[in-house]
Design a protein around this nucleic acid. Structure first.
Lengths: 232, 232
DNA sequence: CCAATAGTGTCTATGAGACATTATAGT
DNA sequence: ACTATAATGTCTCATAGACACTATTGG
């Protein structure tokens, strides 16, 4: 019961490094990819790492703000979906000393990413990762599990698509993230309709091709973060 | 791109206080309760708070170890279920300065808690909370949402029960956490059987009363952290 | 025998999966 | 007309919910 020191900056315990990491994910060539940057200095110089940096206690309102700022500074992007993942900590994950990193994950449409075209980024399929700095291979693993797990009962896959999409695109996105047997197109339409999460663009817009034009849809604004009781 | 300082302990950014908090929950009088301790010093002295303390960078192997150590030191308990909840951070949540707290939640059988009978603890129903120190009212809210959400498709409610329990006790525990309409006893038996998570005590044991004796069950060791595809 | 709860069996309505059919563009 | 995919409709089987029924103890 002696743990109520007056100050955390006392010399009783070693100082702790506090950082924030963001695993940025996108869907490219029908595969989930993670965005990394090659480190240009510090520990693990020359090695790819997730997007991350120090907490700025003087300017960040909190962890979410720190993650958004870091992502913006390093890629120029504001991710439509960004959430806290897990906080990783320990004496060995950073050679500079004991560290705590608030891990996040973010999703972005691959077209938005390619239009922004941030400097120095690389993209790897999540199951063909090279060795990453710090504990970032572990962070990717945890993030992918979370994404796969949550995709089945939430609107999370929508954030890997453009704002306007066809139902077929949406179905394929769910299929690619969830793996397993592809969903029957007819049944997918019925289910997504029951869930009441999408609406037709008004006035109607169509995506044409060598087929019957597909009506474009968007997510219903009030259902952007919907979580379902049942699985897709 | 200037965030790759050589040292986190440089004077460029204010130092950050790192703590760990544990919301300890139990089921008492058919209501979910949270355990708090009245603070005997420091900020918010005299106010009830979740179980928490500073990270000990010299001894804790990581956040999970820090949470377990804090819980053990302050209550003498080793919780059968303890998981990371969310990391709360910001300039105002602790009057001592900018702080990051790795929030956890733990579940324990009320009988184990009462047998241990830790000093200085209080228990409140989660919907009749007094004002707590720091952002602990928020932490309880987040934890309760998580518990309610996850209970429906996991074995989480088992950790609020003794090691050996009747199916009726298990059903009532799920009912109490999930709220809503109580589950039909017959249907609950069928579902819990399909999920393959419990087994009869061997040799059979019974809980007697003014009724037909109820067979005692336990969770299957290999299914302790099972997550289901569907809802109970 | 009665009260009380444990535990089993059965009917039905809902809804998911499988699959057939129709619609509408480009070539 | 043909191809390709969008979009709708229908059949069937599995299962969740409702509820009736039987079992076994203490009093």
């Amino acid at each position: 019961m002696k743990t109520t020191d007056k100050s955390a900056t006392s010399k009783e315990y070693p100082a702790i490094i506090v950082t924030v990491d963001v695993g940025l994910f996108t869907l490219k060539h029908e595969q989930l990819h993670v965005v990394v940057q090659v480190r240009d200095k510090g520990p693990f110089e020359g090695m790819p790492a997730l997007i991350g940096g120090f907490f700025h206690a003087n300017e960040d309102k909190g962890g979410f703000a720190a993650a958004n700022r870091t992502l913006l500074e390093k890629t120029g992007l504001v991710a439509p979906y960004l959430d806290q993942l897990y906080t990783f900590s320990g004496p060995d994950r950073d050679p500079r000393g004991y560290s705590v990193s608030i891990g996040h994950f973010a999703l972005v449409d691959v077209h938005v990413l390619e239009r922004q075209n941030p400097k120095n980024i690389l993209m790897f399929p999540v199951d063909e990762l090279p060795q990453l700095a710090f504990d970032h291979n572990l962070q990717v693993k945890v993030a992918v599990d979370r994404i796969r797990g949550k995709a089945g009962y939430s609107t999370l896959p929508f954030y890997l698509l453009p704002e306007e999409f066809t139902i077929t695109q949406l179905r394929k996105t769910y299929d690619q993230i969830l793996g397993g047997k592809p969903e029957n197109p007819s049944n997918f339409r019925r289910k997504i309709g029951q869930l009441d999460v999408i609406e037709e663009i008004d006035p109607p817009k169509y995506q044409t091709g060598v087929q019957r034009p597909a009506k474009l849809h968007r997510i219903r604004p009030d259902r952007r973060l919907a979580v379902f009781n049942r699985t897709i």
